[in-house]
Amino acid sequence: MAIANIPNYGGGIKICPEACYNDELFDICIVHDLTKWELLRTFPKAYKGKHVHHPSVTMIRGRQVDVTTEWPVLVQGDGEILTKTPVNVTIEKNALLII
């Protein structure tokens, strides 16, 4: 799962290709029911944002995201470990000034 408000991360991977930093919504990419082999075949498509068409990829949008898992899973923000699940993520207008 990736929660984003910009399209790219990690060397240009377009994980949420429709994400926009000023639309006040998170774009959420959820990958489910994918074998390791299918993940290896599908992952390169993420560089062009084409992975979103795979039946095991669900794209949704929202202002608040609650993530719960059966067991604690690490949560990262911009490559840094922040916490473990469960986690609540809320978007806030004008919370960060970028120059």
Rank of each mutant, 00 (worst) to 15 (best):
Met1Trp: 13
Ala2Asp: 13
Ile3Ser: 07
Ile3Gly: 08
Asn5Val: 02
Asn5Lys: 06
Asn5Glu: 00
Ile6Asp: 05
Ile6Val: 14
Pro7Thr: 00
Asn8Asp: 12
Tyr9Ser: 01
Tyr9Gln: 01
Lys14Gly: 02
Ile15Pro: 01
Ile15Met: 07
Cys16Thr: 13
Cys16Gly: 15
Ala19Phe: 07
Cys20Asn: 14
Leu25Ile: 03
Asp27Met: 02
Cys29Arg: 06
Cys29Asp: 03
Ile30Arg: 09
Ile30Gly: 11
Val31Asn: 10
Val31Leu: 15
His32Ile: 05
His32Glu: 09
Leu34Lys: 03
Thr35Lys: 09
Lys36Ile: 15
Lys36Asp: 14
Trp37Pro: 02
Trp37Gln: 08
Leu40Cys: 13
Arg41Ser: 13
Thr42Pro: 00
Phe43Gly: 03
Tyr47Asp: 02
Lys48Gln: 11
Lys50Cys: 03
His51Pro: 08
Val52Asn: 00
Pro55Lys: 13
Pro55Ser: 10
Thr58Cys: 07
Met59Leu: 14
Gly62Asp: 03
Gly62Tyr: 00
Gly62Asn: 01
Arg63Val: 03
Gln64Tyr: 05
Asp66Cys: 08
Asp66Ser: 12
Val67Phe: 04
Val67Ile: 14
Val67Gly: 06
Val67Ser: 07
Thr69Leu: 06
Trp71Val: 13
Trp71Ser: 12
Trp71Glu: 12
Leu74Met: 12
Val75Glu: 06
Gln76Glu: 14
Gly77Met: 13
Glu80Tyr: 09
Ile81Met: 11
Ile81Thr: 15
Thr83Arg: 11
Thr83Cys: 15
Thr85Asp: 06
Thr85Arg: 08
Val87Cys: 00
Ile91Lys: 01
Glu92Lys: 14
Lys93Gly: 01
Lys93Ala: 10
Lys93Phe: 05
Asn94Met: 10
Ala95Ser: 15
Ala95Cys: 10
Ala95Gly: 11
Ala95Val: 04
Leu96Trp: 04
Leu97Lys: 13
Leu97Ile: 12
Ile99Trp: 11
